[in-house]
């Protein structure tokens, strides 16, 4: 089966209209998720200043929730775009883009490592599809990597290494709680 090699060409080669419609629905769902998460992040969450410095970056949920069969180049480009969108609002050109591309790059190997995504069907990683334990692992790794990248690149020095580390971990924990909370609500 040639189409297993280039799954993103599926809508062009497939004769199944139903499948194309299904993909279209996924695409629209992800576009809405992108816009909503960026707006919530820049208009609400960027003003949350728990303890004066903890700023949860929940928009990373977009990268977590891309369908597993998304081609990797598209994941990278979308991650970059997501980061740049948040950067434009926060006046930190390049900062979030860097962290997002890093998280987007690590996503696929992580999905493979957790044993999901081997079979040919497409799905959105969530608590329901990955299972509670696997999803917690999946989300924690990506969120922590993303937050560490942001906080250390932003500090741009190792002078306050432990302060930065502490801030990053605390913010990552808050983000993780929100992300897992959203997943739990959705599963009901």
């Amino acid at each position: 089966m040639r189409r297993m090699v280039f799954p993103y060409l599926l809508p062009l080669t497939s004769h199944s209209l139903l499948l194309t419609l299904f993909m279209l629905q996924t695409v629209i769902q992800n576009i809405i998720r992108f816009v909503v998460l960026v707006l919530v992040q820049v208009l609400v969450l960027n003003h949350v200043q728990f303890l004066g410095f903890v700023n949860p970056y929940v928009y990373v949920l977009f990268i977590l929730s891309l369908p597993v069969r998304t081609p990797r180049w598209l994941t990278l480009v979308l991650s970059f775009g997501l980061g740049m969108a948040v950067d434009a609002f926060a006046d930190t050109l390049g900062l979030h883009a860097f962290a997002c591309v890093l998280a987007g790059f690590l996503r696929d190997p992580l999905v493979k490592l957790l044993g999901a995504g081997d079979d040919n069907n497409d799905f959105t990683p969530s608590m329901a599809t990955l299972g509670m334990g696997n999803y917690v692992k999946y989300a924690s790794v990506l969120v922590v990597v993303h937050h560490l990248a942001i906080y250390f690149l932003e500090a741009f020095t190792l002078a306050h290494f432990f302060d930065t580390l502490w801030h990053a971990c605390l913010a990552a924990a808050v983000t993780l709680v929100i992300v897992l909370g959203l997943q739990l609500i959705k599963r009901r």
Partner: peptide, 13 residues
């Protein structure tokens, strides 16, 4: 592509 995007972001920052 990954390296290209990372270098671009870093340079911008």
């Amino acid at each position: 592509l990954f390296l290209l995007l990372e270098i671009a972001s870093f340079a911008l920052f």
